[in-house]
Design a protein around this nucleic acid. Structure first.
Lengths: 342, 342
DNA sequence: TTGTACGCGTTATCAG
DNA sequence: CTGATAACGCGTACAA
């Protein structure tokens, strides 16, 4: 039967609708026998309650949502898994929401928050060049994961992340320590104001600290329209770079970009790491299994995930004010980097 | 302001609720001036209509959903993008729904279908060892993408895919053609009844066709509990295989598995393809950029995506009965396979 | 062109 | 323990 409702079940069992509702929602005030009977009838009739109606009426959802921008970013998959587990521990249900690339994640957040009556929200990815105005519309607690907002517009938001500036500095310093002076840099689009900007600053500052002049020509930005954090983009950008510059190392701000770059180098007949070192950022599995395995900054996903959940739940309980939590990244030295031979 | 409703807007503008509703939903019967005024007020007040209430009321959603099982399966990302574009062309909205690994995709489908009043449904991933009973509960048209149901329980479902048996046969035949006789096989869990089974059959049949005895010891199944289609699993399974067998080629039923296997071979000091050929399945980007780049069967994602959307829309219009569409895969020969030297 | 009133399927309240 | 009934926020006949 097509459109079955709670009423049909009630009729079928010769009880009132509220009794059916009680049976479905594990309410205490119900005769176990009636409950049994109703549940069985529901099973038989293949009745599935309408979620829209439930959400409309319910005032206590005990659910949070995770908003992910950037489908196919495998780095988030693990994080999502951890968040789901943490929610389960606390008895919260966790809704996964993907945000289209062209959608505004903040609009989606507000819409979904109301629709599902959420208690809290986690953001994964997104650019976050947000106006203060939109941010203040957010009525429920939310935490930015993997995104650091220190010193950004809208810095009042809670966040859990690594210090992108510092980690980027660390990687650059490591490459300099290997004797590299001409270090190419592949990164986010030029107009990026969050992660991309911070990592660029880290790179630049490290160079200057070690008296290596910063050269804009060695920096290759993603094209805002054509590129994403994909292998393909890393490959393309590396090819561009190869046409116009010489260098002994490449540092890409994502493992995917670094892998694409490795492939371009290989096809140009340049061996990694003998003739050119390559470093990434994130610590994804793909880098670990690549040949050569990729030197990278590993973000402590496990810790970040748990801290994100912890902070969010504290915010929900009112035990905390929005804070920025910073975790330490780990430089993992693998096969793709080596001492500069020149 | 917290819980704003359509009434508040109506009051604010000194109009009735229906007028506000008309303004929001682009109804024709409304004075452009009033519409303008209302839209402006909505903007100012940051009012966002409640989606649950809308879904509850609306009978004509003109939306479909794509259910994806297996987050982090990058193979699906591209497919999803194509489906979204096709929907847009037809004026449909497309809802992306991820299904937890332990959830039953069919239950989710039924629930979401009712909640959102969907017109149709696309399934990506999932095992589909479904009882006929559950299938018959599905009231709206649905298409399985990338999953072939021919000869399976519940074969009445519409699907668009490659012929997994045939493609698997093709790859095995190719390896045999290179002179390989000891071909290890890394695949889905032993109890898999859909894709895993078909690909295994293809492998086995090809061997027998060429008078090479099928040896169970050369087949390495994923552990249902520990493994997924991940690099890590490919790596682990290859290590197991290395301990107990010798072979000159490995064929893994997913590119991710193949990449993990390459890494394990590398660490065992075995060079690919000189000492051992490796082949994958799917045609993912990761394989294209890997070193050595991966020989694989490319699934025609673009065609499959478009055909999936096309078939679904035809089904919705009642122009079609559920059919199984088969597309041809393409064997892409790359660096990871070579002639057997023994 | 606009406003009133009802109903969508569910849950919560309250009286039995 | 159970049943009637009032919300929840919105869309839409229907009347004005």
């Amino acid at each position: 039967m097509a459109g079955m409702t709670i009423k049909d079940i009630a009729k079928k069992c010769h009880v009132g609708v509220s009794t059916v509702s009680r049976a479905m929602n594990n309410h205490p005030d119900i005769n176990p026998e009636t409950k049994e009977k109703i549940l069985k009838a529901i099973e038989e009739a293949n009745y599935v309650p309408n979620n829209s109606a439930r959400n409309l009426k319910r005032n206590d959802a005990k659910a949070i949502a995770v908003l992910v921008k950037g489908i196919g970013n495998t780095f988030f998959s693990e994080l999502v898994g951890i968040l789901e587990r943490e929610c389960e521990k606390k008895g919260y249900s966790c809704i996964l929401q993907y945000v289209d690339e062209q959608e505004d994640e903040w609009d989606v957040a507000i819409r979904v928050g109301k629709e599902k009556r959420l208690r809290g929200l986690v953001f994964l990815g997104g650019s976050f060049s947000q106006s203060q105005e939109k941010i203040s519309q957010m009525e429920i607690p939310c935490v930015l994961s993997t995104i650091c907002t220190v010193g950004m517009p809208g810095a009042s938001l809670a966040s859990v992340s690594v210090d992108d500036f510092k980690e980027s500095y660390k990687m650059t310093e490591y490459l300099i320590g290997l004797g590299h002076k001409k270090i190419a840099f592949i990164t986010a689009p030029k107009n990026d104001v969050s992660i991309g900007k911070l990592r660029l600053m880290g790179y630049r500052t490290a160079l200057e600290q070690y008296q290596i002049p910063y050269r804009e020509e060695l920096v290759c930005y993603m094209d805002e329209k054509r590129d994403t954090y994909s292998y393909q983009s890393g490959y393309r950008l590396m090819q561009e770079l190869l046409k116009r510059e010489t260098f002994t190392a490449v540092y890409a701000t994502a493992d995917t970009l670094a892998i694409g770059a490795c492939r371009a180098l290989k096809e140009a007949g340049i061996s990694v790491p003998e003739e050119c070192s390559v470093a990434g950022f994130d610590g994804m599995d793909a880098g670990r299994f690549y040949i050569p395995s990729l030197t990278t900054i590993r973000q402590p996903v496990e810790e970040i995930g748990k801290a994100t959940a912890g902070l969010l739940f504290d915010l929900i309980k009112g035990k905390e004010k929005p804070r920025q939590l910073i975790y330490e990244g780990e430089l993992i030295q693998r096969e793709s980097t080596a001492r500069c031979k020149q």
